[in-house]
Design a protein around this nucleic acid. Structure first.
Lengths: 234, 234
DNA sequence: ACACCCGATATCCGATACGATATTCGATTA
DNA sequence: TAATCGAATATCGTATCGGATATCGGGTGT
């Protein structure tokens, strides 16, 4: 996950020809994020600063920095004088809250995208949708998680095309968490999503804001209903 | 600002009778947050870890922690090997993005609040609205900032009454930034808001979701239009 | 058998000192 | 004047230490 630049976008300089070494804190963050979103470190697990420092071969300072950032995103929880733990699984009520939130935001973002997307953005989205479609044919274990990642990117790209950075940032935070429970319930990811994605893409390609909004809303509601059964309790 | 507990709400234990000493990192965070939202440290200002550590009489460790958290909220920006600076003023485009976002979220939250608010929540909201009304009569410099704070709390409380923590957290992040530019342009805060607040409160008291949604939308749009002139450029 | 108290261990929080590296800014030079 | 070089400064990260606290175990008493 990129660091959200909350301020105005820094003027896009030319691509840095020599990659400046990022801070160790940032690297540690990226590594741990990868461990978390792949569930290689299970929810609830204790995260010892000392242990992680030895494991990554760095001192505690960068580890601390990474953990603080992860806590701000809700991926780990901290208890004073006790340390960090991987955040627990999403509760049913939070699941509902997230989908309610998405239903407010994403249809609007899709409508904006239909009006504002550049041809290259549309092309990229179309390609992404096709890759997902191809992936859906052979549903192996490995493909599930790849599909889940691409689904997150698909929605993120649509939001980007909507040209509202506040919306993008808000959704970006959610996608990490959504990805986690999509991984938990492979079956429900149900690659049914591809047909709905096609409908959305058609609307965006035609610049039809109303249709984009409607199809996106239907898609999210359908996605929620596919997952819902797993969260009956709570 | 409270630390958002992204996970499910921890079961509300009884109030801790013996106050556990918070970590110095948390205290440093609170202190610096207060400095920032009051503009006592102006935007763009350099924030030296060493300097802040001496100023607060603590070591660098808690200061680092506080700065990392503030960065995650977009209140300060970090450049590798250069340090931290207070985030710059909001740009015009970000201003528009924020209001677009609020127009999507807050009317829905108000509608939910109209249906779900408990009597005590309604009472607290009513009282808050009345205090603001009283404050609006004598508009001194000091009252402006107090009013701005209460306005933020008013909206936050309504969101809370809507019983969607994801929405609450998303808005909470924005309110800090909104507060900052409300402070910058006192004049535009224009305590006109009180009449609009009354309309919203009436709808919530009567449990009229549709009216709550409509009045909230009108309120935010009006607020945007009051501020808009200050952001013509960019 | 159960509850309670107490001590050992491990960990976190924070302090401090130090080294490596990058940025900044002034001085020198063409 | 403009550009280059070098020293001062600050940050980033390391290493280490001490105090405080949570956790876990064993022992005692009822």
């Amino acid at each position: 996950m990129k660091k959200p630049s909350h301020g105005q976008p820094t003027e896009a300089g030319p691509a840095p020809l020599i990659a400046p070494r990022p801070s160790l804190g940032d690297e540690a963050y990226e590594l741990m994020l990868a461990e978390l979103i792949s569930l290689r470190i299970p929810p609830g697990e204790k995260l010892s600063v000392d242990g992680l420092a030895r494991q990554f071969g760095v001192s505690q300072t960068p580890i601390r920095a990474a953990l603080i950032r992860l806590e701000a995103e809700g991926l780990v929880v901290k208890k004073h004088n006790t340390g960090y733990n991987v955040a627990p699984q999403l509760s049913g009520s939070r699941f509902r809250d997230i989908y309610e939130f998405r239903l407010l935001i994403e249809p609007a973002a899709a409508a904006a995208a239909a009006l504002l997307a550049t041809p290259s953005e549309v092309a990229a989205l179309t390609e992404l949708a096709e890759e997902m479609s191809a992936l859906a044919d052979t549903d192996t274990e490995a493909n599930y998680s790849k599909f889940a990642l691409m689904d997150g990117e698909f929605h993120a790209r649509i939001a980007e095309a909507g040209r509202n950075t506040v919306i993008c940032e808000a959704l970006e935070r959610l996608y990490t968490h959504m990805h986690l429970f999509r991984l938990r319930y492979h079956a429900a990811v149900a690659m049914d999503a591809v047909k709905e994605h096609d409908a959305i893409m058609r609307a965006i390609r035609e610049g039809d804001g109303a249709a984009a909004q409607a199809t996106m809303q239907a898609h999210i509601a359908a996605s929620r209903d596919r997952m819902q059964p797993y969260f009956n309790a709570t």
